[in-house]
Structure formats: C-alpha cells, structure tokens
C-alpha cells in the first residue's frame, strides 16, 4: 500500500484515495470524428516508468491533485496542483 502525498494533508495511506488515471488528457471538440472521440474515451497509454496521473483524497479533504509516479518502482517523483503544468 503506497503512501500518497496529498497537497493539503501530507502523506497518507493509499486507501484514503482514488486514482483518477492519466492526467492532462484534452477532451476533443464536439466536431471531431468518431475515431478521435473513441480514442479519447477508451484508449490510454500504459508507460513503463514516469506517469502523470490524477488522484483524489476522497476519504480525506476531497482534493483532486496531480502526481508524477514511476509505474515500475512506485516512487512518487512530484506532486502538483490539478490545474498546474507538469514539472519538467
């Protein structure tokens, strides 16, 4: 069970959170074709290594935030606000 560093509350056990999947996915405009829309709905990359993802402290303060996590080692590399750009 990982420890997730909530921006407001600090490091808490993983079961206080839900993972919202990959972050920074832009929703295609209404006019885009079905293939683009379908990829937005159903296709995600599954990188080995550095992954930008969203988490919510659902059994805590309720805040959504971004995390940079290594999908192999589970090391949390960075935390940043949900609307902020990812760190370099």
């Amino acid at each position: 069970m990982m420890q997730i560093p909530c921006i407001r509350c600090g490091a808490r056990d993983e079961h206080e959170f839900i993972c919202g999947g990959t972050s920074h996915i832009a929703r295609p405009a209404l006019e885009q074709d079905d293939v683009v829309w379908g990829e937005y709905l159903f296709f995600r990359d599954n990188p080995k290594g550095r992954h930008l993802e969203r988490w919510r402290h659902v059994y805590g303060c309720g805040l959504w935030f971004n995390l940079v996590r290594d999908t192999v080692t589970h090391e949390v590399l960075a935390v940043y606000a949900i609307t902020a750009a990812p760190p370099p």
């Binding site: 919202g20 929703r27 969203r54 919510r56 659902v58 309720g62 805040l63 959504w64 949900i82 609307t83």
Partner: peptide, 13 residues
C-alpha cells in the same frame, strides 16, 4: 457527488 466534484475541480475550474 464525486462526479460533480471532479468536473468542478479538474475541468470547469
């Protein structure tokens, strides 16, 4: 409620 929160915090901020 969770869906509403997600839209408000992440998209329609």
């Amino acid at each position: 409620a969770a869906a509403f929160e997600e839209w408000l915090q992440c998209e329609y901020t």
